[in-house]
Amino acid sequence: MAQGTTTHEVLHPEIGRIEAAKAALRERFEEHLARASEAVVLKAVALTDEKAFAALAKVEVETKRSIATRNQEAVSRMNARAFERVDGRCELLDAKAACEILGITKQALSQKTKAGNLLAYTNSGNRRKFYPSFQFANNKPRAVVARLIKALEVDPADLEAMNFLVQHLVGKMDYSDPGEPSNEVPRFELLDDSVALRIITRDYVNALTAGQ
């Protein structure tokens, strides 16, 4: 009997330490869970236990990053998504393909771009330039593109401004009369329509003003 009592007394402190450790872990997990965004929590709950815990574990890593670092990462992801959207809405040609269409050298292509005669979309991730195919016709740049760049006072050297213009042109607009069914088409398909061009110009200025 005395031996059993001694064994119980020896084990009791160990059990207490284990329970205390479990309580501390639960408290830390609750704090960790509180830092997770709603999106992370909803994603984790649908996963198996191991994958759910792994997803939640990433939250701690993210919280250790500085605000400046997280902001830069967010901008990088946003730029990547913007490029994907443009690439999905129009055909983007690399410099080699654009040169072959126009029958010019890369140097001449660069000069035309700098002069505001061509649209170039710059991938912010690798700084490569791409040329929307809609601006070419009959192996020449469409004159309306240069007129539009000049009318909107877009600086060809301002990569963000040029990207914004391309994003605007690949976006859709409803070009239907009141009472008619909706007729949404990419803006670049309407550049030769003088009435539509005025609307495109007006909408660009409004969007630019709102963005500022």
Rank of each mutant, 00 (worst) to 15 (best):
Y175I: 04
L169M: 10
N138K: 15
V75Y: 00
M78I: 01
R127S: 12
L152N: 07
D177R: 06
V144P: 06
F136A: 01
L152D: 11
R127W: 11
V86K: 06
L148T: 03
F130Q: 03
V170T: 12
N138W: 10
L148S: 08
K64Y: 04
L169D: 09
S182P: 03
V170E: 04
L92T: 01
D94K: 09
N79G: 00
N117W: 08
I67D: 10
V154E: 04
Q135L: 07
K140N: 08
T122V: 14
P156L: 12
T113Q: 14
V170Y: 11
A161S: 15
K96Y: 07
L119T: 03
L93C: 03
T63R: 13
M162H: 07
K129V: 03
M78K: 12
A95L: 11
R142D: 07
T105S: 15
F164Y: 14
Y131E: 00
L148E: 07
A54C: 01
R70Q: 05
Y175L: 07
A161W: 15
M162I: 07
V75R: 11
E60R: 14
F130A: 07
L169V: 09
R65F: 04
E62H: 08
D87C: 08
L119Y: 04
A151D: 14
Q107W: 09
L152I: 10
E153P: 04
Y121T: 05
S133F: 13
D158Y: 13
T122F: 13
E60H: 06
N183Q: 04
L152Y: 10
A68Y: 00
Y121H: 06
Q107C: 09
A82C: 03
S124H: 12
K114H: 10
G179Q: 06
A80S: 12
E153S: 14
K114N: 12
R89L: 14
N183Y: 04
V59T: 14
L165C: 02
D158Q: 13
R81N: 08
R142H: 02
A74Y: 00
E160G: 08
Q167C: 11
A143S: 12
R77W: 00
K150W: 01
L109I: 03
N138L: 11
C90N: 04
N123F: 12
P178R: 10
N79V: 04
G125W: 02
A55V: 02
P141T: 00
S66A: 05
A80D: 14
C99A: 05
S66D: 04
S66K: 08
Q72S: 02
E60A: 15
A98V: 08
Q135H: 08
L109M: 08
K129W: 07
E73S: 05
L56R: 11
P181Y: 00
N79R: 09
E160Y: 14
R142G: 01
A95V: 10
Q111R: 13
N71E: 13
Q107S: 12
A82P: 01
F53R: 12
L93F: 03
M162R: 05
L92R: 01
E153N: 13
I67G: 06
Q135P: 13
V59S: 08
A54K: 12
L92G: 02
K112E: 07
A115C: 02
I104K: 11
P132I: 02
K172H: 05
K114V: 07
R70C: 00
N183I: 00
T113C: 11
V145L: 11
G171D: 15
A146V: 01
E73N: 05
F134Q: 09
A80E: 15
E153M: 06
K129T: 01
R77D: 06
N126W: 03
R147A: 13
